[in-house]
Design a protein around this nucleic acid. Structure first.
Lengths: 365, 365
DNA sequence: TTGTAGGCGTTATCAG
DNA sequence: CTGATAACGCCTACAA
């Protein structure tokens, strides 16, 4: 930054004269000490109402605003909540819907609690990891989105934990660990989805799952299995006895589209598909349509996420709603209030999911 | 934050002992002064290779990381680039696609240039505006997304300018002002879209525009008009002589859906529609389908944005691609390098758009 | 109820 | 090439 400091406290930035007002000047004008100015602005300690007014007035006439950097420096904290987003291409795997909802939820709460939101976009290589953000003390805590259950990721999370850096995972569970987590009940969501198909009279229900490194994929499989077994049916399974009932994609639309071809070969053994997210469901519907098989007419489909996209497909897609906004908001709230010691340090929460019925399962029932 | 400082420099946070290593300790271990440690880490001034190595080694054994807050405090800057997002509900007007692309572009460049990204989600009320971020010196510059051409917004932007706070608008132009801007050539994009429809043999081309407070809406109207006039046709116009050829929505899918009913009344005077974004195009196609009018069969459609959604409609939607990622990246680059005085302070750039042809205009031609 | 003063971890300017 | 040292703007015991 091209700037010059003058002796009288003014600063020239880019040819413009900036007057940076500090506490000192407010104190002088109000005829009090600097400490008193701080007290007024932080609302601490007892003080005479008159003094307070005098300070506030002085601050107003001088247009004083406390310098956040100096405050944070003195308080030995950054005032930032970091939010880690996975490497960009993955955004196309998850829906952008997922991120914008969670981010909005986090953003609202963070502001409410007087923090700022630092966005950390991961790079593809990312040798230096998010722990550096803590080391440099740029963030006081962080929320990690799109974490995967891989050895590398787990190692990094453990390092964070050992370093005593507060963090929280959203929509991802690590079995056997006690990380802070805010998750949704994907097992129940999937159970509801499959029950709905069963209620519609479907019996031969295939499951198109997403990548197994996300815990929610496992949860969904569990819910699918449970519903099938309760109905006395043999569920599909990775490597199980019913290979025509289990398929796997990576949550992208393209992977759903590709699955269509495989699924089509078994079309006479299938009357419904439950897809682990809307994007795959949409790709699947497209692929099968091209092969002459129409969702809602030739087979029933249920998606997952209840994203905006579910409303715009033809036919509109029945889907499982996940409270992403609330998950973000809750994660931020828990994390930040634990920093203040206002809440227990550890938490693991699971929010409820529900089914939103549209027309992709046909009109029978 | 529940923490206690010990006399030996250690800190207890949430019951954990944190050792905060400072420059001082590195200096002691390396047997040099603190200033030398700084020089090594900032790579300034000449220094003996051996000294440098000694310092780096000491830093490594102590696991030293410079404290970013202290650095920024001393440098009198925040090291943050702020990104202002409009109030959440608007996210549903724009596509989330728009934001995730731009944000990714900004994020990549910001990291590359050694800054951090502070996300500023606007509140609905938002009495206190983004100028406070500058006053509190939380950001060194900011990028404003989703700005509207309204008196209130303009006033705020002028205040920023007068305060000497560097900012940049993306995808929004203010006629008569010299704000920093990175825009796309929406007039050309629209021209291409309409030319394509003309080339397909369409003559009676309606235009479904978005909210007029965005400059891009005006640009699109211009492009539409230009193409129509060049073809010797009378374009639709707000309040013009051809009311059946001009419609207005607010960029949401729902507004496109609603426009379908109005448009349907004029179906015998229309053989194509150019929609100002994909979401409205999709809503429109849905609405008209429900009325028995099929895109690609009964009429041609072109959308705008080339969002993910354009690929998943039926039929796939011909659309205008806008380089959102590049726009974000460029805005960040220009803004940040102007801070360093490495680039001229003011810039106004317009990036190119192009047409992506799919099947929504039928197969004739 | 208010003032004094030490400290936060750097940067950057001088000497040497 | 390196070492002192004065900021930077605010917080917060402790003293009055």
């Amino acid at each position: 930054m091209l700037q010059v400091w003058l002796e009288d406290g003014r600063t020239i930035i880019e040819g413009r004269v900036q007057v940076i007002v500090t506490r000192k000047e407010v104190a002088e004008l109000a005829g009090v000490s600097e400490a008193t100015v701080s007290r007024v602005f932080n609302g601490v300690g007892p003080m005479k109402e008159e003094t307070k007014q005098r300070v506030l007035e002085a601050a107003k006439t001088l247009n004083y605003h406390p310098n956040a950097i100096a405050q944070n420096f003195a308080r030995r904290r950054s005032g930032n909540l970091g939010v880690v987003l996975p490497y960009v291409p993955k955004v196309h795997l998850f829906s952008t819907y997922f991120f914008s909802e969670i981010l909005s939820g986090i953003g609202a709460k963070v502001k409410e609690m007087g923090y700022d939101l630092l966005l950390l976009l991961r790079s593809p290589d990312e040798e230096s990891d998010y722990i550096d953000m803590f080391r440099a003390q740029k963030v006081d805590a962080c929320i990690i989105l799109g974490a995967t259950d891989t050895p590398r990721e787990l190692e990094q999370l453990k390092a964070l934990e050992e370093g005593g850096h507060p963090f929280c995972l959203v929509n991802q569970h690590f079995e056997g660990e006690r990380f802070n987590e805010v998750d949704a009940d994907h097992q129940k969501g999937s159970y509801l989805a499959v029950r709905h198909l069963l209620d519609k009279g479907c019996r031969r229900i295939a499951f198109l799952n997403g990548s197994p490194q996300f815990s929610s994929s496992g949860d969904r499989l569990e819910g699918y299995r449970q519903a099938m077994r309760e109905a006395g049916l043999e569920p599909g399974d990775p490597g199980g006895s019913q290979p025509h009932l289990y398929y796997e994609g990576n949550y992208s639309r393209t992977s759903g589209y590709r699955a269509a071809a495989r699924l089509f070969e078994h079309r006479y053994e299938i009357d419904a598909v439950f897809a682990a997210n809307d994007r795959m469901a949409i790709g699947l519907m497209q692929g099968l349509r091209e092969l002459g098989w129409e969702a809602g007419r030739d087979f029933a489909v249920v998606g997952y996420d209840n994203s905006d996209a579910a409303r715009v497909t033809d036919p509109p897609l029945t889907s499982v709603a996940v409270p992403f906004y609330e998950m973000g908001s809750l994660a931020a709230e828990r994390l930040l209030s634990s920093l203040n010691g206002e809440a227990p340090a550890a938490f693991q929460t699971k929010l409820d999911t529900e089914l939103v019925v549209r027309q992709s399962c046909g009109k029978r029932s």
